Computed example of a mutant assay.
Amino acid sequence: MRRPAGLPPRRAARGFTLIEVVVALVVMAVMSVMAWRAVSALTTSREHNEAAMERAETLQTLMRQWELDLREVQDSGQVPALAFDGATLRLTRRRETGLQLVAWQVREGRLSRWESPPVADRDALQDAWFRSQQLNVEELRAQPGLSGVAGWQMHFFRGNGWSNAQSSDDVTTVNRPSPSASDPSGQAQVAKRVVPSGVRMRLQFADGSGYRGELIREVAVESSGS
């Protein structure tokens, strides 16, 4: 069949060349890599933010407990109401059913809190005090705590200023009745540990712990006698 005069000649159908296909595949691959990197960055950022929020929540919860313990200190007259030996801070706090012995300790890069059951007699309180001196690492790791701690320092507010918590500034002498056969109204001087009116804790964090620098907490102590 002859084509009408004046029409352009028919061209054969033309597909993609190999080079065009390769270029398209390369572009798609580059776009896929860029998209994957963006999704990966978002996921990593979210994980980091969640971890940071979890660390902050753990720290805040522990510090609230720290302040609560110190604000409920009670002097039993049997064991020190508040004492620091360089590694462990021990205190007795009042509870509805008696007194409780609490020990805060830094060991192997972790700040841990241990507490005894509330006790109502002197012997049980003495036992709890000795028990707090025998805690091992496994027991402490099972307790609430904070990892990534490089060290800590403790100061007590005594008189009109802060001093090292391990100093003897909180020991004074008082007169107590000491009757004898020759002097029924006699008195004797005995040493008594005065509860400080404030505690300053300084926590140093280890590199890679997720915390920066150090943390300082000052808490007023409102001790009551037994």
Rank of each mutant, 00 (worst) to 15 (best):
M1P: 11
M1V: 10
R3T: 04
P9H: 02
R10K: 07
A12V: 09
A13H: 08
R14C: 07
F16A: 14
E20N: 05
A24R: 02
A29I: 05
M31G: 15
V33K: 04
R37Q: 14
A38Y: 08
A38N: 07
A41K: 05
L42F: 05
T43E: 13
T44H: 09
R46D: 14
R46E: 14
H48I: 06
A52W: 01
E54K: 10
A56D: 13
E57R: 13
L59F: 11
T61H: 12
L68A: 14
E72K: 03
D75H: 08
G77W: 01
Q78N: 08
P80V: 03
F84C: 13
D85W: 01
D85A: 08
G86K: 02
T88K: 07
L91Y: 00
T92V: 15
T92E: 10
R93E: 12
R94C: 03
E96A: 14
G98M: 05
G98S: 07
L101F: 00
A103C: 08
V106F: 04
E108K: 04
G109S: 07
R110L: 10
R110D: 11
L111R: 04
S112L: 07
R113F: 03
R113M: 08
S116K: 06
P117D: 11
P118A: 14
D123E: 14
L125Q: 06
Q126G: 09
R131A: 15
Q134E: 15
E138W: 00
E138R: 09
L140F: 05
R141V: 06
A142R: 12
A142T: 00
A142W: 00
S147K: 05
G148S: 07
G148W: 06
G148E: 10
A150F: 01
F156Y: 15
F157D: 04
R158Q: 13
N160F: 11
G161Q: 07
W162G: 12
A165W: 01
Q166A: 12
S167C: 04
S168Q: 12
D169P: 00
D170W: 12
T172G: 10
N175L: 15
S180T: 15
S180G: 15
P184S: 06
P184H: 03
V190I: 14
R193G: 03
F205I: 09
A206M: 12
D207T: 05
S209P: 04
G210C: 10
G213P: 04
L215H: 05
R217L: 15
V221C: 13
V221G: 13
S224E: 12
